[in-house]
Amino acid sequence: MSEIRAVTSPLSRRALLGWASSALALVAGRRGAAQGAGARPVPAALARLQAVAEVTLPTALISGAAERFDRWMREYTPGAESLHGYGDATITRTPADPRPAWRTQLAELDRQALKEGSATFAALPRAARERIVRSTLDALPNARLVSDPLTAPHVIVALLSFALRAPEASDLAFEAQIGARRCRPLEASPDAPVPLTARRGR
């Protein structure tokens, strides 16, 4: 209910409908496979995320990034107990739910698109989308990638931070199959990771 309160008043009817469809998708996601195949439409929020991913992420990371981010977002539990390590006895909790603000920000992209003469952000040509994204990021004070996407000040930063913290992104940057945080044979650790080109060539 708090999510509804966060988005109703300032939004257009279309944005509200878009949010409602993504909220329905959230419920559907939680209920898992109870829904029949093909019964779940692509929510507007997911389409917007996909449109953002296409103009912000490196080409090789675009495919599936929006879906992964959407699923990660849906499965988040605000207020869960965080890791408490050495040196501090304080018990901390995961941040407040960023999703209402992120949905508002996604809806705002549609409002920007309206000024460009498009019904939705996703329907804009790539160059126009990038212009809006750049202008949005430039307007953020100290916009930078964050290690914890949940603390991102904007959904664009969250999506980028989420996608670029994945081991696949790191492999792409280092052009090698490092496979960080994956189970890998210990005895292979002295070897140089295999170049990514070797995998492509197979």
Binding site: A80, E81, S82, Y86, A89, I91, T94, L150
Partner: peptide, 23 residues
């Protein structure tokens, strides 16, 4: 994924202290 503690219920509410290194 989220920074959640991987050790659920590994401490006792109320059993803490100033200057303690870990709960």
């Amino acid at each position: 994924d989220y920074g959640e503690s991987p050790w659920p219920r590994d401490h006792i509410d109320g059993m803490t202290a100033d200057g303690l290194q870990s709960r």
